[in-house]
Every structure is written in structure tokens, then in C-alpha cells.
């Protein structure tokens, strides 16, 4: 079995890796590149803990092969803060207690960021629908939704 050589961009950095044909992008990120922020909750597309964007599109990295990332632009949770400066979403999740155990949090942050890039002023309903593929067993979602709405407010005010 020969490994596949993949050239891609991850969080703005040109990145190369070798992977097995059946390896998922999530496995590559975590096990080969040390980017363990993306979590595996289910491995079957149901929980969203593995959410990343690929060429600007929100996807489950567990449902994509590493080999499919050839030539793509991948953004993960590791690229969200700017050095020590948290992204407004990360800050509002802290302020509003939008996380408890934290397993779902990286996926939810990546998903919420992708929503706010498309829709800077989402309604509560829009936030809930957008995040329907991100499961959280701890918070009951309410604080998550409030944190996203608050970040949207902050970002609109800042721009």
C-alpha cells in the first residue's frame, strides 16, 4: 500500500503530508500534523466536533479523506485566535459560559465563525439551524446560542 503525497494550505501555511488512502482528514490533522483541536465525537458526520472549513465551506473532517485535501485551503480551530488575541467568538464563549467539558467547542466555534462570515446578523433561529449539526451534551445549547449572538453584535460594532 503506497502512501499519498498531499500538498495543501492549513490555516494559511503551505503544508505537505503523506497519508494512507483510507485516512480521513480528521486523522491526518490530529495524528500526523498534531492539530488536535478538531475532535472526533462520532466519526460518522452526526456530531460536528470535527468541523473545519475547506475552501471556505464548513465540512466534517471525519467525512473527508486526507487525500481529498490536495490543493485545498483548510481552516481549523488552531487558526482562529490571532496569536494571543482571541477571536470575538472565543471571548464570548468564555464570557457566556458557552462551554463545559469543551469537546464540542472547537467544532462549534469553527461552525459559528463560518456562519458569521456569511451572515453577520443572524437571528436566533438561523443560529440554531446553522448549528444543528453540532451536538453538545453539556450546555443545553442556550448559552452557546447567546454567545454566538453576542459575538455577532461585538463584531458588527467593531466593523
Amino acid at each position: 500500500m503506497s502512501q499519498i503525497h498531499v500538498t495543501t494550505t492549513i490555516n494559511g501555511d503551505a503544508t505537505e503530508f503523506l497519508c494512507e488512502p483510507e485516512e480521513t482528514l480528521l486523522d491526518v490533522l490530529r495524528d500526523r500534523l498534531g492539530l488536535t483541536g478538531s475532535k472526533e465525537g462520532c466519526g460518522t458526520g452526526d456530531c460536528g466536533a470535527c468541523s473545519v472549513t475547506v475552501d471556505g465551506r464548513l465540512v466534517c473532517s471525519c467525512l473527508m479523506l486526507g487525500a481529498e485535501a490536495q490543493g485545498a485551503r483548510v481552516e481549523t480551530i488552531e487558526g482562529m485566535a490571532d496569536g494571543d488575541d482571541l477571536h470575538p467568538l472565543q471571548q464570548t464563549f468564555l464570557d457566556h459560559a458557552g462551554l463545559q467539558c469543551g469537546i464540542c467547542t472547537p467544532g462549534i466555534l469553527v461552525a459559528a465563525k463560518s456562519l458569521l462570515e456569511r451572515n453577520p446578523a443572524p437571528s436566533e433561529e438561523e443560529v440554531r439551524y446553522w448549528l444543528a449539526g453540532n451536538l453538545c451534551r453539556c450546555t443545553g445549547y442556550d448559552k452557546i446560542v447567546r454567545a454566538v449572538m453576542a459575538a455577532a453584535d461585538d463584531m458588527r460594532r467593531a466593523s
Binding site: G45, V54, C60, M64, A132
Partner: peptide, 9 residues
């Protein structure tokens, strides 16, 4: 079909 993530693919 599915969630936002599934819709992307």
C-alpha cells in the same frame, strides 16, 4: 439533507 456540514458536501 443533513446539517450545514453535510450540505457542504
Amino acid at each position: 439533507i443533513g446539517s450545514t456540514q453535510i450540505q457542504g458536501r
